[in-house]
Design a protein around this nucleic acid. Structure first.
Lengths: 128, 128
DNA sequence: TAAAAAATTGACTTTTACGTAAGAGTTTTT
DNA sequence: AAAAACTCTTACGTAAAAGTCAATTTTTTA
């Protein structure tokens, strides 16, 4: 595994711009180290970027993605905080399950539409 | 089933603003009928709104939602068009499957985090 | 029928998530 | 060494998706 990635390596891998990566840094989602002024991204930053992209695909805002990423960070010592994290997880889970149901519903509706299209095509072949 | 819904009935049901519904009308997603200047929403508009909200939850843009909704409209007669719709459906399906995988991945990561929190809590109870 | 509540259009504003451009310094390639 | 490629900061611009406000109707309720 590589020690460091340059910013352009990552923009190419994830098909995003340097602006986007700098924006994510400003937003506190990633914290690349510096050699002089130049950013050096560690494998852990790369993992974070993967998680960010996944969140984006699911339609989460930057703030929501930050919340999720924060959950992944090593659990703190205090029990009140731990319980709050567990609550947060439960509520994210509910949201994700809703999204999954939305996907299932949409998929099955698309199946129906496709069937209708196929039938119409078959009809056309007979009628013509 | 009701014949018509007023705009506020629907804003309450879906927890959105009148501005949003008018925006969706401007965007051509819904076409409520009018009694004078006042909009009257039919059950079919209500169904469309449900589909819009579902698309929003999945992070689709208005344009993408419009594309999906257009697929649902009764299939046209011409076979070229039918084939294009089928292609569109296949590509949306791929996108939805990716989203579903993203959800599964996130869910199982959250499970792991929750386990870690629970273990930490158990530790605290023993140690204290 | 008068007052209150709901609806309309139109215009301007806001937030999010970057895009784009300027100007300058570094590193790499030729 | 000169050119090309990469990187940086700063700052203004933009598109999408509404929010907000104003100035009217329209409809409903008292």
């Amino acid at each position: 595994m590589k020690d460091f990635y340059t910013i352009t390596e990552l923009t190419r891998e994830f098909d995003i711009s340097t602006r986007t990566l700098r924006f994510y840094e400003d937003e506190g989602l990633i914290k690349p180290v510096r050699r002089g002024r130049t950013r050096l991204f560690r494998p852990s930053d790369r993992v974070l970027i993967k998680q960010i992209m996944r969140g984006k695909r699911l339609g989460f805002s930057i703030a929501e993605i930050r919340d999720i990423i924060d959950m992944y960070k090593s659990p703190p010592g205090e029990s009140g905080q731990l319980n709050r994290i567990i609550e947060g997880i439960e509520s994210k889970r509910a949201e994700l399950r809703q999204k999954r149901k939305d996907i299932e519903d949409t998929l099955s509706e698309l199946d129906q539409v496709e069937d209708a299209c196929m039938n119409r095509l078959a009809e056309l072949r007979v009628t013509s």
